[in-house]
Amino acid sequence: MLRLLTRELRLAWVERSGGAIALIFFLIVVSLFPFAVGPQPQVLARIAAGVVWVAALLACLLSLERLFQPDAEDGTLEQLVTHGLSFEAIATAKIIAHWLTTALPLLLLTPLAAILLNAPAASWGLLAAGLALGTPALSAIGGVAAALTVGLRRGGILISLLVLPLAVPTLIFGVGLLDPLAGVAALKWLAATTLVALSVSPFAAAAGLRAALE
């Protein structure tokens, strides 16, 4: 499984323009809000956390369609199975690779987004911590949705439809982290949500992949 993960990371590095697209998309979405609601720093500061979270969520969705689809098309998925990798191992490697190549770089960009939205420096830490803790759930849920839609023609749009409702808890608790009163509770719930997502998703994604090979 480790060997597959290292190859996924190598492939992501060779085709890094794909990863960069998600990062640019993240910054563009963040920049759209000032155009929409006006540049007043006070207004932006108040909605900053929510905007960063929504932008990060959407950016994570971008690369999900390419998670399993290319491997199903070029026979790689078949070969991985005949080489003895379980569907669960394949799904886990892919989800981890997705998190490392998409969510992690996003984390590094949150200060930039926070600056654009005039978020107070004090909130950057909580914002980054929330994203670090919440994005694994997004990768996990996204992995399941990607596995379920392998082979479908318009899989990409469908993935967003499947992931977004399931991502609501992560979004609420992630932004809730910055709430002065309920911050600690939000942290616990966020961690719980991510743990549940991480523990369920390899098996759900494996079922999806197994069905795709039928």
């Binding site: 323009s17 960069a20 697209i21 640019i24 910054l27 563009i28 920049s31």
Partner: peptide
């Protein structure tokens, strides 16, 4: 952003 879209 336009530059980056162009390169992508």
């Amino acid at each position: 952003f336009i530059y980056m879209g162009y390169m992508a």
